[in-house]
């Protein structure tokens, strides 16, 4: 059932195609418990496809994906129970209040009303949004909405948090707030994080980095080791052959 002493996430030799287009090709990566791993790639590298496979929105046609030791294909329930996700597109119900969104998400994880309220307040406090709990999501700023989505993803105490381009479309201050919230979770609560991004300034030297390019993993190492004394963006361009404009896009 469950692999003993499992990594928070283990992806082994996963490939996926859309018709004749190969979106992922033999991708393998592992995320240790309580670690921050950046999944770095330009737009179209396959980051969202990989996240869709991990969350079982797509089926992993070939290879194996385990979350906390549970195979997402054979043991989807326990695997997804340990997973929190912040998708690239906004997914809160804008017509409902933040607290109502929390309650709905809690119910989707089998958590009843009173417990949902307790946990909801806890996580909203954690991301600095307790004061906005009864506001409609439509009234929140972009950064607040993202932090509310992070709070929602944490509601059921997942050990692995996936964030797909979570800072896209945010201003500098909101981006900083979101990044610092997530790093705080790793540091203080031991949540493992897979942070999909194409923005180098969100990656610290000690972070683990997986470079994904055209559906293939080109490198897996710490950011500092990949940079080799230069900066990460130059190392990335040398590794992928991508144009600087792709990286900045």
């Amino acid at each position: 059932m469950k692999t003993p002493q499992a990594a928070a996430l283990n992806v082994e030799r996963v490939s996926h195609s859309f018709g004749k287009t190969r979106a992922l090709d033999d991708v393998s990566l592992s995320i240790r418990s309580g670690g921050f791993t950046a999944l770095l790639g330009v737009n179209g590298a396959g980051k969202t496809t990989l996240i869709s496979l991990i969350t079982r929105l797509y089926d992993n046609i070939s290879g194996k994906i385990e979350i906390g030791g549970y195979d997402v294909r054979r043991n989807a329930g326990p695997a997804l129970a340990g997973l929190g996700v912040v998708f690239q597109s906004r997914s809160l119900d804008v017509g409902l209040t933040v607290r109502q969104n929390m309650r709905y998400h809690a119910a989707l994880h089998g958590i009843g009303k009173s417990e949902a309220r307790r946990r909801g307040d806890l996580v909203l406090d954690r991301v600095g949004l307790i004061g906005q709990a009864d506001m409609k999501v439509a009234a929140l700023s972009g950064g607040q909405t993202r932090r509310a989505e992070i709070a929602r993803a944490l509601l059921h105490n997942p050990r692995l948090l996936l964030l797909d381009e979570a800072t896209v479309g945010l201003d500098i201050q909101s981006r900083r707030d979101v990044v610092s919230t997530v790093r705080g979770l790793v540091r203080e609560e031991g949540v493992a994080v897979l942070w999909a991004t194409h923005l180098f300034d969100e990656i610290d030297p000690q972070d683990d980095v997986v470079v994904l390019h055209r559906g293939r993993v080109l490198a897996r190492d710490s950011s500092a080791a990949l940079a080799q004394g230069t900066n990460l963006s130059d190392a990335f361009l040398a590794l992928t052959g991508a144009e600087p404009v792709d990286v900045l896009a």
Binding site: T55, S89, R90, S91, H109
Partner: peptide
Amino acid sequence: TGAMRTLLVSPY
């Protein structure tokens, strides 16, 4: 809008 994903990643 992405709200469907929230439903479909439920463990049920």
